[in-house]
């Protein structure tokens, strides 16, 4: 790799980095929110709602993200729903990852001490109050480390955007390879992904310290 080629490629890399950062930030927020909504309904423990959500979670957990993404990107235009690629990608990630987030939160809901719930019930709170104001915040707080881990998975998932015509970090690396047949760019992209992961896990450790409390 010579310096000139690299200098020419640098703007591309920064552009890709920008898109990856923005897309993963949006996807992390949307999938955590959707997962949390699903989890509140699971905490509410209505048989029919829980059944429907089970099906949702099972479908989106067990289908590859790539297939969902291609389905939305290539399939929906056939029924006259044409969305920009970025929206398709974020929608696919949101559907797929919110299932994982919901499953994480369901696990913590099951692990909440029975005494906490009984105390809330005996105070005379309504059912939706218990589920949204007692169970849900507790579950959210207990699952901070796992949620942070899931957000680093989401960052990695955005690398699939390169397959649906979005110029993200991965695409930038691939563009250099296609032009000069040198995989140095992909190594650089890999290092950047690892750095993002390290930053995220550092942030997660800080957040975990804040969220944990002594009983």
């Amino acid at each position: 790799m010579n310096a000139l080629q690299f200098a020419g490629w640098l703007p591309d890399l920064l552009e890709g980095l920008k898109i990856t950062m923005a897309a993963s930030l949006i996807s992390i927020v949307t999938s955590t929110v959707l997962g949390a909504v699903v989890a509140i309904f699971v905490a509410y423990d209505n048989k029919i709602v829980t059944g429907i959500l089970r099906v949702f979670v099972s479908i989106f957990r067990n289908t590859p993200l790539l297939v969902i993404m291609f389905f939305i990107f290539y399939g929906l235009p056939l029924i006259n729903v044409v969305w920009p690629p970025l929206l398709c990608g974020i929608l696919a990630i949101t559907l797929n990852e919110s299932a994982f987030v919901a499953e994480i939160l369901r696990g913590s809901i099951l692990n909440i001490p029975q005494g906490d719930i009984e105390a809330a019930v005996s105070l005379g709170l309504k059912k939706w109050q218990v589920s949204s104001k007692i169970i849900f915040p507790l579950a959210m707080r207990n699952s901070v480390p796992m949620l942070v881990g899931q957000s680093s998975v989401i960052v990695k998932d955005t690398s699939l955007f390169s397959l649906i015509m979005i110029f993200d970090l991965m695409r930038a690396g691939q563009a250099y390879y296609d032009k000069y047949l040198s995989s140095v760019s992909i190594w650089i992209v890999g290092v950047i992904y690892v750095l993002i992961f390290l930053a995220l896990s550092w942030l997660g450790a800080r957040l975990e310290q804040k969220a944990s409390f002594k009983r």
Partner: peptide, 15 residues
């Protein structure tokens, strides 16, 4: 471990 947890599968595959 850190490297593999940080990299997307696609990057590993292409490398």
């Amino acid at each position: 471990n850190v490297v593999m947890r940080g990299l997307p599968t696609m990057v590993v595959l292409k490398l």
